[in-house]
């Protein structure tokens, strides 16, 4: 079991790796806002645990095991951010940072399924790493992915309380079959629901999870 601090370091190294930055002790200490001395101590420790490789003065590289752990933490972090975003919270990053170390694998997977296996984090738009299992069961499209003329069934709305209630009252409820009748590229989507037509903004449509039907 790794400490929270170790996990934080691995997560930061993963972030630098994602951004294709050169990973060095000074870069890590800068990104985390800690001293170089404590960084190099931690790198040494992680290296002894065979989670990363560090040649003196060379670049730092995660081992396969280190990479898996780091990716998993990042995944939890971004899933939690997505969830907090769904709750309508503003500063989601710090809260997600605390929660990510306590959440179990099962809960993270359930959260992922609840959110319809989102591809990207709504907070920074970065990719959410996959769990490695078959996604097709959890993966949900959003209303914004449905093209004109297609029918679809609403799975869940992930938008704010007020918007969600208004959608509900117009009949856009989980399980409801709707048809996209018109749409603008990256613009609003017009759907037929309960015998009338309703236009929904693009941002909102991206928060409405749907199940495709043939």
């Amino acid at each position: 079991m790794l400490s929270e601090n170790e996990e934080e370091y691995l997560e930061e190294i993963y972030a630098l790796f994602e951004d294709r930055e050169k990973i060095s002790i000074s870069r890590i200490s800068e990104a985390m806002g800690v001293s170089k001395a404590s960084t190099s101590e931690m790198i040494k420790k992680l290296s002894e645990e065979r989670l990363l490789k560090h040649e003196r003065y060379g670049e730092i590289e995660l081992t396969e095991e280190g990479m898996n752990i780091a990716r998993n933490i990042k995944r939890k972090h971004r899933l939690l951010e997505s969830f907090l975003h769904f709750l309508g919270k503003k500063d989601v990053h710090n809260e997600a940072c605390k929660l990510e170390h306590g959440i179990s694998e099962e809960s993270a997977d359930a959260l992922c399924k609840f959110l319809g296996a989102p591809e990207r984090c709504p907070d920074d738009g970065k990719e959410i790493p996959r769990c490695g299992k078959d996604c097709s069961e959890c993966l949900k499209k959003t209303l914004a992915d449905i093209s004109t003329g297609k029918e679809t069934v609403i799975f869940r709305t992930l938008c704010g309380r007020k918007a969600s209630m208004r959608l509900n009252e117009l009949g856009l409820l989980p399980g409801e079959k709707i048809k996209v009748v018109n749409r603008m590229a990256h613009g609003p989507i017009e759907v037929e629901v309960k015998g009338t037509k309703v236009a929904i903004g693009y941002g909102l449509a991206k928060k409405i999870l749907v199940e495709e039907c043939e």
Binding site: A163, P188, I200
Partner: peptide
């Protein structure tokens, strides 16, 4: 106030 995106009956 909450920014509600476009929800409009046509």
């Amino acid at each position: 106030g909450e920014a509600v995106g476009l929800i409009m009956e046509m």
